[in-house]
Design a protein around this nucleic acid. Sequence first.
DNA 1: ATGAAAGCGCTAACAT
DNA 2: ATGTTAGCGCTTTCAT
Lengths: 331, 331
Amino acid sequence: MAGVSPATASRALSTPEHVRPETRAKVDHAARLLDYVPHGAARALASQRSRIIGAVIPTLDNAIFANSVNALQGTLAESGYTLLLGSHAYDPAIELQVTRELIERGADGIVFVGTDHDPQIYRMLATFRTPYVLIWSLDPSGQHPCIGFNNRDAAIRVTRHLLDLGHHRFGVISGLTAHNDRVRERLAGVRDALRARGLELSPRAVVERPYSFASGQQAMSELMGRKPSPTAVVCINDVLAIGAIIECRAAGIDVPGDVSITGFDDMEISAQLAPGLTTMRVPTIDLGRAAATYLVDRLAGREVATCTELPVELVVRGSTGPARGGNPARA
Amino acid sequence: MAGVSPATASRALSTPEHVRPETRAKVDHAARLLDYVPHGAARALASQRSRIIGAVIPTLDNAIFANSVNALQGTLAESGYTLLLGSHAYDPAIELQVTRELIERGADGIVFVGTDHDPQIYRMLATFRTPYVLIWSLDPSGQHPCIGFNNRDAAIRVTRHLLDLGHHRFGVISGLTAHNDRVRERLAGVRDALRARGLELSPRAVVERPYSFASGQQAMSELMGRKPSPTAVVCINDVLAIGAIIECRAAGIDVPGDVSITGFDDMEISAQLAPGLTTMRVPTIDLGRAAATYLVDRLAGREVATCTELPVELVVRGSTGPARGGNPARA
DNA sequence: ATGAAAGCGCTAACAT
DNA sequence: ATGTTAGCGCTTTCAT
């Protein structure tokens, strides 16, 4: 004790401006001397706020999410919040369970990826009045706060790039569509873009695989085995696209001479490959940062935008080129 | 209320075996009806256990750590623990702060990476009697519980592989050595192995860079600009090694014809590259799992080994070959 | 600006 | 097997 009441000590540490500098000094001194570390649980119990923000993400395997999470955590830390992380490996049951856990831990706010979530999750959030925000997608219903981009439009832009290069025989390497609105939207975007030019994507032209380099390789090999083989392959993310490029190298298929390949996300390595991967750049860092800012502001009672759309950018590199014998003027 | 006392309700939920099935049913029913979610903070305050395990890691950028963390979390979840994650970007001040935060949150145990930590961290852990474990390294002092492997020996094995192929002009692409015992140990291992064959590593032959593909590229370019240029380049991890391979491809340098390259970690993509990367496989998943098991067992009062050494494995792929004109029989 | 007192939601003796 | 009773360490009215 520094000769003051517990109440004053508490104020000195939590709201220093409400305490005379002199008293504050005494308390700070004592705290230092005692190696005082506040008791988070007691604090949370008394104040009804945990200063914990939860994040529910599919997996950390994907470097893309890792970047967002990193930014999220950094930004939260600046405002005195701690990140509590839960991952679910794309399993809705685990996701529900993890969310429950975060609420149980008293999370003041929660970040989710995408719009595909068990209704029970939304119900729980409502019951506990827990603020939350969805990232990576835009919520079409407008019911949920979100910070993301239009996955479908982005995919349309990628596909158009290929169409403009004269391609008309397409293949698609997709991620698993179950419980993943990003993948479904991107896929829909590809279909939309093709249809707009009078092309249909046959089911056989779409290969669905979990995210891994090996999957991408396999899928590419499968696609190139079809005849006629595609001259352009749209991959739903960079991991799959890189796998596809690797497969081409192994199989002696020239990229983009024989086939053009596109990705989605723009991971660090995508720029370094030979050829460089044409892809849609997603602002992963900004996504994490904006989510943190959103929740911190909301918890501080500040006004916040319900939905924020972040820009994505088509990055054209060496993996795409004109269709062989194609006519760039028309598809 | 289900017509029982709070104490019974508590028991029914926490230690069901201490309650008559009939009563348990009543409580469970009421809980379901009320959408009851226990209050973590109150529970932690009363029971003096948070069921939270903290992990203090350098960064999630490195897919390698992400894998370990994933495994850590999964294994902890099986035992009813939640992972609280803190990263510090290799900054000791942030690391101290993050650790403080974890203790403040009442972490029942904490996982750290490597042995290089501010003495104040160890002091705090002792003060709060917080169990902890170091992963990725072996603690030479034997003072700290750890689960890892011998980074120096592993680096020796990699270097010997190159020596046995007849190389004697070496370059090294290192990570930053500050606050990173893994990098320092691996570097020392390379030096040891060379010295054992009468070779010295000149300071100019070692390039130190942060972990990124781009760094690896740059470093490789620098190294190959020296004359005589190395015929073998040891990279302290796969990220740098992949950057190096990419640079060679860009610069028209044949791997392994002109230069052999080795990595360390064995990331998923390392196997897929052309040429495949010769590297030291680190059991990232096992590391995370073992750390979880260690802490859970310790917290349950079970006996635990102070230090566990996990095996690493040299994976020879296409990026290494005989020294041009070298004599494999002797270095 | 500071102190006194109540209580956050739960668990853990202890008693029955 | 269940109820009674404190109390975990802090914050927050409320009073001064």
